[in-house]
């Protein structure tokens, strides 16, 4: 039983929460809201003498840019293809690691290592491996006879996107493996025992016991992951910088370019567009998955 609410207790709660709230309000919410306001201002860092409100001018300017639309399309490819491979490879890995075997702990520790690296470093690592001349990937593909000529992976538009996605998949599989393993462990053993008694095959057990049980968790993991991949410009930033010719630009690298270029007005506009997109997608997604559950 929780005791009644008293003034003393209220003071204690307030004191404990105050530091965190102050930090978040001052350094997260305030700049975030200012960023939304700036979206409607002409605000360039190199000319801040006049910052008039200009209505939707920034939005119009952004939407008129080809690079924005390219970035938007690329975002779709980047998120969908990365997610697809991360999810299925991660699921496979989770199933393989599900039962205890000797050395499993050690194996997990090693396989987990990409997670300790920053997106920035991962981008660098793969930039070097995908190097068109001295890159080890070209060398391996040549030696195995898969290609007979070096490919300028990061200098060719289609290949550049493939390369950043390969790096992203490499990074993200472990995340899914670990989350899905946790979800699998949450399935009560009795359910399998009952299914065994009924003589259900392993495949049927997976389909009719495991999957329905972990589906809500999976839906949530996937949503979080989509948002995360979208908000993850670090790897692309260091691997290709969005190039060549904007072919690996995603919407968040596009936003960062606006900010680094000093055009905070347009940066704000892009930010708000991303926000709207995320919100719309999340609502749509949650409705869609709830619909699934009800069926």
């Amino acid at each position: 039983m929780r005791p009644a609410f008293t003034l003393r207790k209220a003071r204690f709660i307030a004191l404990c929460l105050l530091p965190g709230v102050v930090f978040v309000v001052l350094f997260t919410y305030y700049p975030m809201i200012r960023g939304m306001v700036i979206a409607f201002q002409r605000y360039n860092l190199f000319d801040i003498t006049s910052t008039p409100f200009v209505g939707l001018e920034n939005f119009r300017a952004v939407l008129a840019e080809d690079r924005f639309w390219t970035a938007l399309r690329n975002t779709g490819t980047w998120v969908a293809v990365s997610l697809f491979f991360q999810f299925f490879l991660g699921f496979g890995l989770a199933l393989l690691l599900r039962r205890h075997f000797r050395g499993r702990g050690l194996y997990q520790a090693w396989v987990f290592f990409p997670w300790a690296m920053s997106g920035f470093l991962i981008g660098l690592l793969w930039r070097w491996m995908f190097n068109g001349q001295f890159g080890v990937i070209n060398d391996l593909l040549l030696r195995t006879g898969i290609i007979d000529q070096r490919i300028g992976f990061l200098a060719t538009p289609g290949w550049a996107m493939t390369s950043v996605i390969v790096a992203n998949v490499w990074y993200g599989v472990t995340f899914f493996a670990i989350m899905i393993m946790a979800a699998l462990q949450s399935v009560p053993k009795e359910l399998y025992e009952a299914a065994d008694v009924d003589g259900a095959s392993k495949l049927r057990q997976f389909w009719h016991v495991t999957l329905p049980h972990i589906r809500p968790t999976l839906a949530l993991i996937v949503l979080l992951r989509i948002i995360w991949i979208l908000n993850f410009p670090d790897l692309i930033y260091s691997m290709t910088g969005g190039g060549p010719a904007g072919s690996t630009d995603i919407i968040t690298t596009f936003l960062i370019q606006q900010v680094i270029g000093g055009d905070y007005g347009r940066g704000g506009a892009v930010g708000l567009l991303i926000l709207g997109l995320l919100l719309a997608f999340s609502v749509f997604y949650m409705n869609a998955t709830r619909f699934e559950k009800a069926r």
Partner: peptide, 21 residues
């Protein structure tokens, strides 16, 4: 909720204004 929301938003919206701050 206010805490969770900060984790979902692209932090980069705040980048410019944070610089000004």
């Amino acid at each position: 909720l206010a805490f969770l929301v900060t984790q979902m938003l692209p932090l980069f919206i705040a980048l410019g204004p944070l610089y000004l701050l």
